[in-house]
Design a protein around this nucleic acid. Structure first.
Lengths: 140, 140
DNA sequence: GACATTTATGTGCATATACACATTTATGCC
DNA sequence: GGCATAAATGTGTATATGCACATAAATGTC
């Protein structure tokens, strides 16, 4: 097998990114009724889970660049789903929280997630996915 | 475990995308001397491997949207690494090929790839990666 | 041979991604 | 207290990603 075929067939960069595109496609099509993108859904979940996180912490939790996080938040704030408030102690920090509309839309999206996630798990089985997730976590 | 934690911990969308960002980061930092991005490197490899492919075929091979492929090609053509030529039989098709500069830069990038890929395989082992790649391929 | 359909491609738009650089506020040290 | 440093955030720029829509060339049908 020549070198180019070796790269095509085994390159981690290519295969992990292609898988991410395919997975994104599935979830975004399902989430379409909410108008949320993949990044936006993930962000809403993280804000709800981590209770008023500042932007930098949110970015770290999602393994996302801090400045990317800022851009992802923009359409969410424009839609009135997320609000920012300066921290009382440290005025540099902007703590993020879901608005009532954000909470309500997230509930709707969570129900959709249940369905897509179940559908995706059928392709692998929950056990294989759990194992894969742990392996993916090693790619740091 | 509440629903938000379940999503955070198991969501395929989040974990596969986060892994893709991390992997991209590793490869792009290594490829920096070539000035190639992740998508650009992958694209050069595919053009070299599939011998003058038209854009749509290239996009299919890389599981990438056709219009995304068009945009990825733009900076490569601007740099004079890739050229387009209308097919002799079917004038709708634009067949892609590497220029001498493109061939030369790809050779340089391939050498870098060997190093990064080996480094990434150390995190998993080649066997685990091969298994993971096959599982990722099921996520269609 | 004319016309509807299909196929290959491009473009406008919105968001995703991250680097380099700039700004504001907090902290540490003397 | 004053100043160097660090920390949290934003902005300009370039590429990545894909949808909706548009165009041009080939193909099929009558």
């Amino acid at each position: 097998m020549d070198h180019l075929k070796l790269i095509s067939n085994t390159c981690m960069l290519q295969h992990v990114r292609a898988a991410a595109r395919r997975v994104t496609d599935h979830y975004e099509k399902a989430l379409k009724p909410t108008g949320l993108t993949a990044s936006q859904f993930t962000t809403l979940v993280a804000i709800a889970r981590f209770r008023d996180p500042p932007i930098t912490m949110l970015a770290e939790r999602l393994t996302m660049d801090r400045t990317t996080m800022t851009r992802v938040l923009a359409p969410l704030q424009r839609r009135g789903l997320v609000s920012q408030n300066a921290d009382a102690q440290d005025k540099r920090m902007r703590r993020l929280s879901l608005t009532p509309d954000g909470i309500s839309l997230l509930r709707e999206a969570e129900a959709i997630w249940d369905g897509v996630q179940a559908h995706m798990l059928e392709k692998l089985s929950p056990e294989v996915w759990e194992e894969m997730r742990d392996q993916l976590a090693k790619l740091t």
